[in-house]
Design a protein around this nucleic acid. Structure first.
Length: 424
RNA sequence: GGAGAGGUGGCUGAGUGGUCGAAAGCGACAGAUUGCUAAUCUGUUGUACGGUACGAAAGGCCGUACCGAGGGUUCGAAUCCCUCCCUCUCCGCCA
């Protein structure tokens, strides 16, 4: 959520930063904020007098005046008239407040000044590449063909019991997934992230805090009967671990990692990536989340990116880093780097991790604050997160990059100890 | 699912209609003091929003809201009434 004060103090700058994402007219919002505050002041004044009357009546009754005393009568009458006025104003105030709140929740995060300006994907900035894209001299198979021919995965049966965009991993396929999870968690906990096994179902408030709601409800699976949602990413439970809390300043920064399945409805992506592990309704991911002091969030973002990159490097998978431009930025992010892994069958790079800085955007929505020791007041933390990494896409990248002329797949050296074998 | 208990400030816990934002204790912070790894004494100690003829500023002052959430009764609600949520205990079921 944006700072409502910036609507008043910093309006032109705010408007301009938001417009770098696309079209946003904040004018109506500013008027709403103005109207709300005027009305609120009116109510406060009436309430103040009403409180005073309450106090006076109390004093008089204590001084053994009877309730029928003219003084008391006059006060209670005034109190009654105030009550009538408030009964009219308060519902209007509540309504305005609700509308303002809803409108604020729909405003995306203004991009960081560091984010390159641009309209869409085409304007993203290539930061650097790592490793040499492989193009073997034998016919390259897509990972789902490799996977099915080696008996690692089965799409037909998974689809029969569930829906399209589901997979059942089998035998060494399931073991490889598990090994990757273990490997990634080992690395990230060594890098200083405290592992959490969070709830996979969360409430509406949690999804609102991280920004998936109210705008993107159709992207998540909802259990209507209990008003709970399947998490689309562990970002949601990890960030919400501290919602509503005031963290002692000395406890920052906080680093968490988690392995969780993620669930996405993929509404609106019909026909895209219909085969393979790239776009499933259920997939596994290791997520990294940081809660940090605002002054350090830029530096923390870079090290977070490095922690995600380290996994690809350890697996010796070629990749590149792309910084998203203002027009391509996710709703909640103010700055974002994507890691894209080389996929030989596509002859292209494919997103495997997204490392975002959210500034105080999520912290405001989730009310996550910290208090500097010795200082008055509280501040919102900055939140960051990144995939470290998406497991299914990593598996796809391994199968394709490590396929051999004889149809087998050689395992990356760091994974061999986890699976006790060299080839799949 | 059945029966019961309960949700108060960082924590424990008092408070059943009238200056209660809330006693007390603990903790924390600041100062004082004692020759001893700590004790004692004193003081301070929630959050948010708004206003401001104060202040260079930090801040001060004024107001409003918050005792699980939302309604209601009343001149006045932590306290009474209604609805909802959550937690705990016992029983049942169950990985």
């Amino acid at each position: 959520m944006i700072d409502p004060k910036s609507l008043r103090d910093d309006f032109p700058a705010l408007q301009q930063r938001l417009q770098s994402r696309g079209e946003y007219d904040l004018g109506p919002l500013r008027e709403l904020d103005q109207a709300q505050r005027t009305l609120e002041q009116q109510c406060h004044q009436l309430q103040a007098r009403s409180n005073e009357i309450g106090r006076l009546v109390g004093q008089k009754l204590k001084a053994r005046l009877s309730a029928q005393d003219p003084d008391v009568q006059m006060l209670t009458q005034e109190g009654n008239s105030l009550k009538i006025q408030l009964a009219e104003l308060e519902p209007r105030l509540r309504e305005l407040k609700g509308r303002l709140e809803q409108a604020l929740l729909m405003i995306p995060n203004p991009p960081s000044p560091l984010t390159p300006l641009g309209k869409d994907e085409g304007d993203n900035r290539l930061c650097h590449t790592w490793g040499e894209p492989r193009l073997p001299d034998f016919p390259v198979l897509p990972h789902w063909e490799i996977g099915e021919s080696l008996g690692l995965m089965n799409f037909t049966r998974a689809t029969r019991m569930a829906q399209s965009r589901f997979v059942a991993l089998v035998g060494a396929g399931a073991a490889l997934e598990r090994a990757l999870i273990q490997f990634m968690l080992d690395r990230q906990t060594q890098a200083g992230y405290l592992e959490v096994a969070p709830p996979l179902l969360v409430n509406t408030q949690a999804l609102t805090a991280t920004g998936q709601l109210p705008k993107f409800g159709e992207e998540s699976f909802r259990c209507a009967q209990d008003d709970l949602w399947l998490i689309p990413t562990a970002e949601v439970p990890l960030t919400n671990l501290y919602s509503g809390e005031i963290i002692p300043g000395g406890s920052l920064p906080i680093y968490h990692c988690a392995y969780t399945p993620c669930f996405r409805r993929e509404a609106g992506s019909y026909g895209r990536d219909t085969r393979g592990l790239i776009r499933l309704h259920q997939f596994n991911k290791i997520e990294l989340v940081k809660l940090v002091h605002p002054q350090t969030s830029e530096a923390e973002h870079q090290t977070l990116l490095g922690d995600a990159e380290a996994i690809l490097q350890a697996l010796e998978l070629p990749y590149r880093v792309v910084e998203l431009c203002t027009g391509d930025l996710g709703f909640s992010a103010c700055r974002c780097f994507d890691l894209e892994v080389w996929l030989p069958s596509a002859g292209n790079y494919r997103e495997i991790s997204s490392c975002s800085n959210f500034g105080d955007f999520q912290a405001r929505r989730g009310n996550i604050r910290f208090k500097e020791p010795g200082q008055k007041g509280t501040q919102f933390v900055h939140t960051l997160n990144g995939s470290g990494l998406a497991v299914g896409r990593t598996m796809a990248a391994i199968l394709e990059n490590y396929q051999q002329a004889d149809g087998r797949v050689k395992l990356p050296a760091v994974l061999q100890p986890y699976l006790n074998r060299e080839f799949l």
